[in-house]
């Protein structure tokens, strides 16, 4: 093989081998990193852990709610911006995309604390969902906008020309045409929400511990094969999600 191929093989190994090893060792019967035999013990522990179950439920609920909201809001926003630019809005959305998570997190924390002084409410699921919608909108706009940029502007004009009003042109022509982009955007919003630790940990309340928060605590405590099992499950779960979405987009 040529040197370039060798190099690329090395890079692919670097990207994938650590995760594959982690998945493999989730089936190890020993809790240490010496292979002793196949076992599903860690998966059993994972599924029977009440705290993990609760956290997974919270994560799914938050991700589902924020994905739906962010996808709808972001798609409408992209369409509005496509019709006519609003530099300050697209600039702000872009800025929020490149803002380090830790800064988004502490600024939201400061905002919620400040808001608590004026209105009676506490950190909890709602604050997490609001925060997730806020940072997911930019991702949705990014993906849907990319799709709109390649769209043919004459399509909506054709719809108007054939007797559709503006609303029908959007609903019957532009939206169906955007469907693959919107689905990709929703998938991205779901993954960033489900995965987020930094912002979530800052704006979560006592009732809203998420899977990444539990995972983080377990990882800090030290070696734990249950973490490997959860990791393997997340890895496979997201892999399946992406495959399904690619299938759906092709049809």
């Amino acid at each position: 093989m040529r040197p370039l191929t060798w190099f690329a093989v090395g890079i692919y190994a670097f990207l994938h081998v650590p995760l594959l090893i982690l998945c493999a060792f989730s089936f190890n019967s020993s809790r240490f990193t010496i292979w002793e035999g196949f076992s599903l013990e860690w998966y059993r522990q994972m599924f029977t852990d009440a705290q993990l179950g609760e956290a997974a439920r919270n994560s799914l609920l938050i991700a589902a709610a924020s994905t739906v909201l962010a996808t709808v809001i972001g798609t409408l926003c992209s369409y509005g911006l496509w019709k006519k630019q609003a530099k300050w809005l697209s600039g702000s959305l872009y800025l929020s995309l490149v803002t380090p998570e830790i800064i988004s997190g502490i600024s939201l924390l400061a905002f919620f604390q400040w808001a608590f002084r004026h209105w009676q409410f506490q950190l909890g699921m709602h604050t997490v969902i609001l925060a997730h919608v806020a940072f997911s909108i930019s991702y949705v706009v990014l993906v849907v906008m990319a799709r709109l940029r390649t769209a043919e502007p004459a399509l909506e004009e054709a719809a108007l020309d054939l007797g559709a009003n503006e609303w029908q042109a959007f609903w019957l022509v532009t939206l169906p045409m955007l469907r693959p982009g919107i689905m990709a955007a929703a998938l991205l919003a779901f993954t960033v929400s489900f995965d987020d630790y930094v912002i979530t940990s800052l704006v979560a309340g006592v009732d809203s511990e998420t899977l990444p928060m539990v995972l983080y605590a377990m990882a800090r405590r030290g070696a734990n094969p249950v973490v490997s099992a959860i990791s393997a499950l997340i890895f496979v779960g997201f892999g399946a999600l992406i495959l399904i979405s690619e299938r759906l987009q092709k049809t």
Binding site: E152, E157, A158, L160, D161, M177
Partner: peptide
């Protein structure tokens, strides 16, 4: 009058057929 109120139709340069 809005385009949809005019008794005029168009064949577009790019055809603008609805792909879906």
């Amino acid at each position: 009058l809005r385009p949809y109120e005019r008794p005029v139709t168009t064949v577009f340069q790019s055809y603008a057929l609805f792909p879906h």
